[in-house]
Amino acid sequence: MTCHNALALLEDYVDGELSAELEARVREHLAGCRRCRLEFEWSSVLKELLKQKKAPDPDRDRWAETTNLIYARTVEQDTNRYRIMSVAERNSAQRGAFVRSVVSVAASLAILFSAILLGSGSQQQLARVSASESPIFVAAPLEDQVTSDNITVASDEENLRRAKGMLLLGPPGSLGRFISPFDFARAIN
C-alpha cells in the first residue's frame, strides 16, 4: 500500500470503519512508514480531544428559565388562546370579520361610484353654464370672454363674497367654483 492510499483511508481507519482486510493493510503500512504514522497520531489525538470536548451543564435556574420560556411560547400560548376564545366565540368572531369585510367593500364601492357620478355631473354643469352663457363666473377661454357681449362685471361686494367662498371651499376647479349652495343651484338651473 502506498502512502497516498494509506492517507486516503486514514480517517476511516481511525473511525474503525474499514473492512478487516483494509484495516490490516493500513496497519501494516503504518508500522513501516514514520510519516504516515505521525499523521495517524495527529488524527487519533484530534479524535480523542474532540470526544472529550463536552459542553458545561447550565445551572438549574437557567434550565428552568429556558424551559419556562419554551412553554410560555408554545403550549401555554395555545392553551390561553383556546381558553379566551371558546368555539362559539371563535365562530362569532369569524362572522364579525366577514361582516366587516363586506361593509368595507360596500363602502369602497359607494365612494367610487359617488366620485364617478359627481365627476360626470360637474362636467354637465360646466357644459350647461357655458351653453346658456350664464353670467356666473366660470373658467372660459379668454377670447370668448373678451368677444362676448354678455360679460358681467361683478361688483366689489360680489367679488368679496366670491373670495370668501373660495377661501372657505377651496380654489376654483374644485368646490371653490361654487360660492355657496345657492350659487350652485343657480348654476345648474
Partner: peptide, 28 residues
C-alpha cells in the same frame, strides 16, 4: 432533548446565552 440541543449549540457558538437561545428557538 434539551440537553442534546444545548450541548450542540454550545459547541457551535461557544457561549451559554446563544446556546440558550438556540434551545428555546428550536423547541418553539
Amino acid at each position: 432533548f434539551r440537553r442534546k440541543i444545548y450541548s450542540l449549540a454550545y459547541q457551535v457558538l461557544g457561549n451559554h446565552l446563544d446556546a440558550d437561545e438556540v434551545v428555546q428557538e428550536t423547541f418553539v
